[in-house]
Amino acid sequence: MIKISKIFICLFFLSFIGCSRYTFAPNGFIVNGDTNYYNDSLKLAVGLYGDYVNYIPKKNLGFRVNKLYKTDNKLLKNAKIDPSETLVLFSGIPEFDPFYNLIAFVTKKGQDIDISRGFRKKYDKDTLSYYYKTSLIGKSRIYHTVIPSEKGQLNFLYYQDRTDSCAYCDIEQLSMSNAQRIRQNEPYKLIGADCNCESEKAQQKIVTITIPKDSLIKQQSLIKFYDVNTTQLKCFKLLSGNDRPANINICQGRYIMIYSDLTNKVKWKKEIVIE
Rank of each mutant, 00 (worst) to 15 (best):
Phe63His: 04
Asn196Met: 10
Pro94Arg: 10
Gly18Met: 09
Glu95Ile: 05
Tyr52Ser: 03
Ser15Phe: 14
Gly18Gln: 04
Gly50Tyr: 08
Ile81Asp: 01
Phe13Ala: 07
Ile171Tyr: 01
Gln203His: 09
Thr23Asn: 13
Gln252Ile: 06
Met1Tyr: 12
Gly253Cys: 12
Phe29Trp: 12
Asn185Gly: 03
Gln220Asn: 08
Gly241Val: 01
Asn242Gly: 01
Leu61Thr: 00
Val88Pro: 08
Ser116Cys: 06
Ile248Ala: 05
Tyr143Leu: 08
Gln204Cys: 11
Leu222Lys: 05
Lys267Arg: 09
Glu95Met: 15
Tyr38Met: 03
Leu128Asp: 04
Ala246Ile: 14
Asp261Trp: 03
Ile2His: 09
Gln219Val: 01
Asn32His: 05
Arg21Asn: 12
Ile7Thr: 15
Leu11Met: 11
His144Thr: 03
Ala193Arg: 01
Lys265Phe: 12
Ser240Trp: 04
Asn196Gln: 11
Leu239Gln: 13
Asn27Lys: 10
Tyr123Cys: 11
Phe63Ala: 01
Ile147Tyr: 00
Ser5Gly: 14
Leu44Tyr: 14
Arg141Ser: 15
Arg141Phe: 06
Glu271Cys: 01
Tyr69Phe: 13
Tyr130Cys: 04
Ser165Met: 11
Asp51Pro: 06
Gln204Phe: 00
Pro98Leu: 00
Leu128Ile: 06
Lys125Val: 14
Thr23His: 14
Lys270Pro: 04
Val266Thr: 15
Arg244Met: 04
Lys121Tyr: 05
Leu61Asp: 02
Arg64Ile: 00
Asn73Glu: 08
Asn66Phe: 10
Asn178Gly: 05
Ile142Asp: 03
Phe16Arg: 10
Gly47Tyr: 09
Thr134Gly: 02
Lys122Tyr: 14
Tyr37Trp: 11
Phe99Tyr: 15
Lys237Thr: 15
Tyr131Gln: 02
Ile272Pro: 01
Glu85Leu: 13
Ala79Glu: 13
Gln184Lys: 13
Lys218Ser: 12
Lys270Ala: 07
Ile258Cys: 01
Ala45Gly: 01
Pro148Phe: 04
Ile209Leu: 11
Ile81Gly: 00
Gly152Lys: 02
Gly152Phe: 06
Leu44Ala: 03
Leu174Thr: 08
Asn101Lys: 06
Phe225Asn: 02
Lys70Gln: 14
Asn264Ser: 15
Pro98Trp: 00
Asp112Ala: 09
Ser149Cys: 09
Arg120Trp: 06
Thr86Cys: 10
Lys237Cys: 13
Ile81Asn: 00
Phe105Arg: 08
Asp126Leu: 12
Cys10Phe: 08
Tyr188Leu: 07
Ile2Gln: 09
Lys59Ser: 06
Ser175Ala: 15
Val46Trp: 09
Glu85Arg: 14
Gln180Ala: 11
Lys58Asn: 13
Thr163Met: 09
Arg141Asn: 07
Trp268Pro: 05
Asp227Tyr: 05
Lys109Ala: 02
Ile256Ser: 06
Leu89Met: 13
Pro57Glu: 05
Thr145Tyr: 07
Phe63Trp: 07
Ser240Asp: 13
Tyr49Asn: 09
Tyr132Ala: 00
Gln111Ile: 06
Leu154Asn: 11
Ser221Ala: 11
Lys267Phe: 14
Tyr37Pro: 01
